[in-house]
Write a protein that binds this DNA or RNA. Structure first.
Lengths: 246, 246
DNA sequence: CGACAGCCTTGACCCAGATCAATAGCCAGG
DNA sequence: CCTGGCTATTGATCTGGGTCAAGGCTGTCG
């Protein structure tokens, strides 16, 4: 957000260089990517693409947060993805957007026109390899989310979301994820509700409840402090470790 | 199921040759795969792998149906994947199973030891390409399921599941998906409940309700006839078309 | 400064689906 | 044939979270 203006003509200095779809590229591959890339910025709240629209680019989130949502005809909404810096948007080989993509905060994306990118995927295996790895990670995340949506209580859902945001925030900002943690919620109550399969009233009530019994502390509506992360994980109903799978 | 004994030493005659992870392979690549493949069979109900167990193979489902489920410590279960013939099991680059894999019917899998398969992925781009494509499809399916789990009513969930099974059954058996359709439910009421984030009682009640008002007909507990597929889709709350995205 | 617009919180009430419980069909085995 | 073990159905009741409604807080703009 503060670096919306930072447009890195040199990929070598890009903050997501080692996590994005280009992570595995060598210098030669990177320069090919550099030739077809361009940056786009969106202010918070703006829609990047509507589901069903033609989409002739793919992109990496450079800074800010984007969301993927599905909407039913009667207006029920479900967020199906939360895209943080380095996450990939779009699907090679598909011309139509399958989801609404929205900038949840101010957003900068590094875009590639779809056709050249697809050609590049065939010729530079490192891009395809990394994309496969990222897609498998997203599939795992989606499946974890399925457990949350199908089986967790409202309180567990909120605790899980806070834990995930805390963890992601910690990795992005290189702080330790143990002991007292604090972070800013990047989502409104309504966006949280859309992500968790709840109503915004229930989100609000459960956050109040977690505050009431000391699992979290709130400073304003957005700033959260977690005095005991393990306790939060317990509330989330996850296996205590949050273990990384080899 | 009926072809549990069919072990195809010649990939050319394999029923999933053109849909599985090997779909794009040329003759040379296929023969390399053929060298490292082996078949395994599991009777209905048997667990293929437990979540957290070491898993040193990956595989394609040849015939039958397998399920992926996640379980919480207190026993709540959520199915996160339904694997039909040609679907892929396991994750290259990961040694631990992330989910319980269970044979829901008698099951035959075409297995590859993980290490040789990983090496082969690097050297034969067609395998990696196809795997990426399949993973992207699964990610889309998982996200569609997130909408179902987060926002659909019990009745819509049942209708959606029936529609999906009907459609998959139709493509596998090359029957037309319009007009009166019939198929066998490959899942018990409890498995359906685990998939839909419901209890088995609710599943039973909603199936009875759909039968009562003529959306489906039941012959025994497993055989379903759908007189009007569009009506079923309406009950599922999906956009009428079920449109394929380019 | 006041007014309005967005967000958020809290309360009262309701209902879809969970839970608890009883029963029925359908084999396989003795 | 009866018995026991599944699987499924159906009823009665309970409850978590949805719905509806009324403010409260904060920041921005005139």
């Amino acid at each position: 957000m503060q670096d919306m203006h930072l447009v890195h003509h040199d990929c070598g200095e890009c903050p997501i260089r080692h996590r994005a779809v280009c992570a595995r590229c060598d210098a030669a591959e990177l320069s090919r990517l550099e030739q077809i890339k361009y940056y786009r910025s969106y202010p918070a709240g703006q829609t990047v693409i509507w589901s069903g629209d033609r989409m002739d680019f793919v992109a990496s989130v450079v800074s800010g947060i984007a969301t993927l949502t599905q909407t039913m005809e009667d207006g029920r909404r479900q967020m199906v993805g939360l895209l943080l810096p380095s996450d990939f948007v779009g699907r090679p080989g598909r011309a139509m957007a399958a989801y609404d993509v929205t900038a949840s905060t101010d957003l900068v994306m590094c875009c590639f026109r779809r056709k050249p990118f697809e050609e590049l995927m065939v010729s530079t295996p490192h891009v395809a390899q990394r994309l496969l790895e990222m897609t498998l990670d997203e599939l795992d995340a989606a499946r974890e989310w399925m457990l949350l949506l199908g089986r967790k209580t409202a309180r567990e859902k909120i605790a899980s979301l806070l834990a995930i945001i805390a963890r992601r925030d910690a990795t992005l900002n290189l702080r330790a994820a143990k002991g007292g943690i604090d972070f800013n919620l990047p989502l409104t109550r309504e966006e949280m509700a859309d992500y968790l399969g709840l109503t915004l009233e229930t989100v609000s009530r459960q956050i109040s409840a977690l505050k009431r019994d000391g699992t979290i502390m709130l400073d304003g509506k957005r700033h959260v402090t977690v005095p005991d992360f393990d306790r939060l994980l317990e509330e989330a109903g996850d296996d205590s470790d949050g273990g990384v799978l080899g």
